[in-house]
Design a protein around this nucleic acid. Structure first.
Ligand SMILES: [Mn+2]
Ligand SMILES: [Mn+2]
Ligand SMILES: [Zn+2]
Ligand SMILES: [Zn+2]
Lengths: 145, 145
DNA sequence: CAAGTTATTGAAAGTCGTTTTCAAAAGACC
DNA sequence: GGTCTTTTGAAAACGACTTTCAATAACTTG
């Protein structure tokens, strides 16, 4: 699975005439080893553990390549940092976010997706993407408050 | 209606012990005269037309007060600028955005809202807010492409 | 309404995430 | 290896916003 994603990226790189570098390999390994919604800074710190000399700019640049290659998705939470998460082909989910502890729960709701398509259609729009985030307090944070 | 909103703000200001200033009056007037989703910069330029000496920081500060007072809502589009729009008590809408011409269409969908509440409930969350934006091409932009 | 107190203001500096610049280093191809 | 390009890291630049601070304006009180 991880191997498959590496192949996806290598194929993308070849297609784009990108060179294969040690830095991109490490960043890809670190990214694929995570299962969260990490900010560039967080990723950068993890990457530096494997390879101290690596530059922040390279991490920024490389994550954008992952998005182009289709294996990462960019997301913005209200904290003003861009975060990246794995993107599986043909899959999509939205987020339920605890404003107390920043926990993120992923969900899919085909009914909502359909209603969204209906709304777009009603206005003659050709829909290309959407963003939906629900904010509240998770059970633990609710009981604390 | 505009008068009523001014009263809302004055009541808020009184409650908070805020002073009534010429700057806040002008910014409120300009804000209430708009019907779009304006960035701070756009608002600032409009405000400067009425009152050239006014500072950008004052516009930033004042718009936050409007949000606290409940008469404005803050929104973020992917362009990285905070925008403000009118907020009517008890009303809510989401946005359908054309990525071609940046047109914004507002919509409400009680079915989706209900499904969102269901999702939150299913995860034991107490929902406090949500953000939903649909992206695509409006009819005009679709036909161009 | 003058004096005293405190909030507000505008300009400029600071912050923070991100992007760009640029010279050195590394990859690709011969 | 030699040549041509891409990539890299450090540092500077950027852009939206926030903070600082001294001057000014709004209330309060006598
Ligand atoms: Mn996710
Ligand atoms: Mn709106
Ligand atoms: Zn929580
Ligand atoms: Zn359009």
């Amino acid at each position: 699975m991880i191997l498959e994603k590496k192949k996806t990226f290598n194929a993308f790189a070849a297609r784009q005439g990108l060179r294969s570098t040690r830095q991109r390999d490490i960043i890809l390994d670190v990214f694929l080893a995570t299962h969260e919604h990490l900010s560039v800074e967080e990723l950068y710190l993890k990457v530096k553990a494997s390879q101290p000399g690596i530059g922040q700019a390279t991490v920024y640049r490389t994550l954008k390549l992952f998005v182009e290659a289709g294996l990462a998705r960019e997301m913005m939470l209200p904290d003003g940092q861009t975060r990246y998460e794995h993107q599986l082909v043909g899959e999509h989910h939205d987020h339920l976010i605890c404003t107390g502890c920043n926990a993120i729960i992923e969900f899919e709701d085909e009914q909502i997706e359909q209603l969204q398509r209906d709304i777009a259609k009603r206005h003659g729009f050709s829909l290309t993407a959407h963003k939906m985030q629900l904010f509240g307090l998770c059970p633990a944070c609710s009981s604390k408050a």
